[in-house]
């Protein structure tokens, strides 16, 4: 075990996003505040209640989920991809850092960023809707699992991408659609058939539902379903990243 090496990489990856707080922290907060204003208040005036909860409260878990997903994905994806592009990845590849240590340090830094932004977003929202959390443990568990999953996913995409366009492909065509269709701003139950059924195949739905259960105390699907699904996805992504790093896929020629 290279404990010093692991800690150093973790601290570097964390400092990387803390060095540009405007980009990594303030920007997502502003975006979320805008969503909150536009969807929560403007629309909320008409929608009033969803599943028996005021609309502004209803969208809080979705907004937190949105920032967790975006920030944890972006942190690993951009850090790994930039390191590949500017050649600094060599500094890590020659060092005695095992695939597991690389994976954990990158992922953990991304989880920290996800949690940092996610909690700021939640606090901004809580000012308007109240600071209560129905099931703190479920909330933390879902936040953690989702951050880990998307951090790992970010690594997969960044290692695989040779060009910037490829890196953007996944967020644009996969993550953003799945997130928005995952019931961030609405209840999947509102959809007419066949969309209600099709939506059930979207894994992000269960993550949003899980966090909604954690924060608001009610959701349409059992949190256990979300937990198992996210757990499986995380495990698969973890293995994929580990194999990529261990084999040096696209990293060691």
């Amino acid at each position: 075990m290279n404990t010093i090496g692991f800690k150093t990489l973790l601290s570097k990856e964390t400092r990387r996003f803390l060095k540009v707080p405007g980009q990594t922290v303030a920007q997502p907060v502003i975006t979320t505040a805008l969503y909150f204003l536009v969807f929560g208040f403007a629309l909320g005036g008409r929608v009033k209640e969803l599943d028996g909860i005021s609309y502004v409260r209803f969208i809080v878990p979705g907004l937190v989920m949105l920032s967790l997903i975006q920030n944890s994905f972006l942190n690993t994806a951009s850090s790994m991809f930039i390191a590949k592009m500017q050649g600094t990845i060599v500094d890590l590849l020659v060092a005695p850092l095992s695939p597991g240590e690389l994976l954990t340090a990158f992922t953990l830094a991304a989880v920290i960023r996800g949690f940092l932004v996610g909690s700021i977003v939640w606090m901004v929202a809580a000012i308007f809707t109240g600071f209560s959390i129905a099931h703190p443990l479920w909330t933390l568990l879902f936040a953690l699992m989702v951050s880990i999953e998307f951090a790992l996913f970010g690594l997969v995409v960044a290692i695989w991408s040779d060009k910037f366009e490829q890196l953007n492909l996944i967020p644009t065509f996969v993550i953003t659609p799945l997130t928005f269709l995952g019931g961030v701003f609405y209840s999947a139950h509102m959809l007419p058939e066949p969309w209600a059924t099709i939506t059930k195949a979207n894994p992000v739905l269960y993550m949003v539902e899980g966090l909604r259960y954690g924060i608001l105390g009610q959701a349409h699907s059992s949190p256990w379903v979300g937990l198992i699904l996210t757990g499986v996805l995380t495990a698969v992504s973890g293995v994929a990243v580990w194999v990529m790093l261990a084999r040096g896929y696209k990293l060691r020629g």
Binding site: T3, I4, G5, T8, L9, K12, Q86, L92, A95, P96
Partner: peptide, 17 residues
């Protein structure tokens, strides 16, 4: 470009345990 030479050297030392 994110880091200064001093920081970079610190990291590199650490990576090697």
């Amino acid at each position: 470009p994110f880091f200064t030479p001093r920081e970079v050297l610190r990291f590199q030392m650490g990576y090697f345990g």
